[in-house]
Design a protein around this nucleic acid. Structure first.
Lengths: 323, 323
DNA sequence: CTTGATCGTGAAATCGATTTCTGACAAGGT
DNA sequence: ACCTTGTCAGAAATCGATTTCACGATCAAG
């Protein structure tokens, strides 16, 4: 890797002048030209490492997500990328695999690598953002707003989404509507279940046996569905609180020959393969990409010095009745 | 952010000693203890930026992929991550969105940020790895081996996979087997088609009208399937060369009420939702995760100084006849 | 008791860019 | 002719870690 000194020597100027050429300061046209030629000849690229050390900040933002294999988060990542790239920032994706230690390690990396900011989708439990806050590193939470700390957040109204989905099942005439949601210690899970409860109680008393806490993954959805079908009076419809669990639930229903429309189903989150097979399911679309673009815009504002009090932005879900 | 100097001052030692404590050199127990206490009290984290500048390398590897929303690449990323993390490296994901300029920009970042190495899955056309090679930055290509440059590569045998998939259709008794593959300028696409041709010619002469070049995306698969069905003598089976295109093809078949088993289908690549619906499809599994772990291991070897001539490792696909 | 090997430590150089400081020089106003 | 104002460019400091070098102290071998 050629350095700024070698370019300076080749062009017959000082390193300061080379730096000025690359950063748009006043340099005479002849020297600027000489520098550019020398830089090209040597295939010079300024060291980001040195630049970052000197400036104490870089044009890189960290996006910390819990599961890179979940389409929701990759769509969100695309949104973040679009906005960040347009503003000249690079995005590095950090996959925590739902693990708090890993998450902490990545936040540490973001700090010690002088990254410009962090967008974090913390999956389960509470995340420790105190280090970032203490060091005044810009942070935006996305998908769920963390407990205790006061940071910008971009979320969807999980309760309203759960309510709308369940309401659709009520309107389709189903009588015994169950709910499969995520872990009871994850707020997005309980909020979606609250929405289910809202819509069900409006129609009739809630039977809490119809509420199952699973793990937001396909296997958990399958297990919960099996339990529900084993009840003395099995439900005739189910609201499933995320996309992956619905895959498991559908598999079990298929084994019992009870696929929709025999059983009513509403799902929170997108099912990319749904148009493929003619199964009538009500879907509450998550505006994943939009979540990402909004979070990125907020972060960029913070990076450029905005220091108004923290904001929370709630996006709307869009309901697609049945397909 | 506290620095090593502040820790040194607080502990009553020199910065050199603080560095030695954190890097396992010889330091007396008392001073080491004092340093550790001071570091803890100040919540000191060594600056990776400064460290990287001094050492001219960091424990970060770049994984450059063309489409973060494709499950194949995210599974591959998980494989890379698993191995890298175990070896103490962080992985940053760079999504090129199939764009050559973006790809080049990311490779540039990897170099100028002194990353330890690069794993690249270049989607279309040829990628310019010359910068990395010239700077002796360790590189491993994955999924396809780039033209012209001689680097380590981990690939699957596309031709053999295509042949096996088509062969399965032949054995199921289908007579007119078509092929929908990717763009004709992408090697993985033509190789899979070659496999199809191998298996078909073994049985009877190839009808080239049954070969369609599409775009590796769902829409292209749908369009190609429509064209095939519009032929005077439509095929009774089809080999589809990637997962996303099969989604489109299935949609069209569904509209014509010709879903498998009415039409034979074999697909190159995993279909996560397949267990869900009882459609009999032959699947050639891509060992995506294994591809990632293997590439990461090769890269780590290179990083630790292995400089034997470049290797190419071809993994096997696994065939699942019908489900 | 000497020689020399080893250990612990701090001072200072180093990585490669940016930026302040300073000086040289030219143009313009009185 | 003199002062002001401005532009251009180099020398040197700076960011925060690592590491070489040098030096004193300790300890074992002869």
């Amino acid at each position: 890797m050629p350095t700024i000194y070698e370019v300076a020597a080749a062009a017959g100027v000082s390193p300061a002048t080379v730096s000025r050429v690359f950063n748009g300061a006043n340099v005479s046209p002849e020297k600027a030209e000489a520098v550019r030629k020398a830089a090209k000849a040597l295939a010079f690229t300024p060291s980001r490492t040195a630049r970052t050390l000197r400036l104490q900040s870089s044009e890189v933002i960290a996006l910390v997500i819990p599961d890179i294999e979940n389409p929701f988060f990759t769509a969100l990542a695309r949104g973040v990328e679009d906005v960040a790239r347009a503003a000249g920032y690079s995005v590095v994706l950090c996959n925590t695999d739902e693990d708090h230690d890993t998450e902490l390690r990545y936040l540490d990396v973001a700090l010690s690598a002088n990254m410009a900011g962090v967008i974090i989708a913390a999956a389960g439990g509470n995340s420790d953002l105190s280090g970032l806050i203490a060091r005044k590193c810009p942070v935006v939470a996305v998908d769920r707003s963390p407990h205790g700390v006061d940071v910008d957040a971009v979320i969807v109204d999980h309760r309203a989404g759960g309510r709308a989905a369940t309401q659709a099942l009520v309107e389709q005439g189903f009588q015994r509507i169950a709910c499969i949601t995520g872990p009871s210690d994850v707020e997005t899970a309980t909020q979606r279940a609250d929405g289910w409860r809202d819509a069900v109680t409006a129609a009739r008393p809630v039977d809490e046996r119809y509420l199952r806490y699973a793990d937001f993954r396909a296997e958990g959805g399958a297990a919960a569905m099996s339990e529900l079908l084993a009840l003395p009076e099995p439900p005739d419809a189910v609201f499933v609180a995320n996309d992956l669990m619905s895959v498991g639930a559908l598999r079990v229903l298929s084994e019992h020959s009870k696929l929709p429309p025999a059983t009513g189903m509403a799902v929170f989150g997108d099912l990319p393969f749904l148009p493929l097979v003619p199964i009538p399911i009500t879907v509450v679309h998550m505006p994943a990409r939009h979540l990402g673009t909004t979070a990125a815009k907020l972060l960029l504002e913070r990076i450029t010095g905005d220091d108004q009090p923290a904001r929370t932005i709630a996006l709307r879900n869009q309901l697609t009745p049945v397909n």
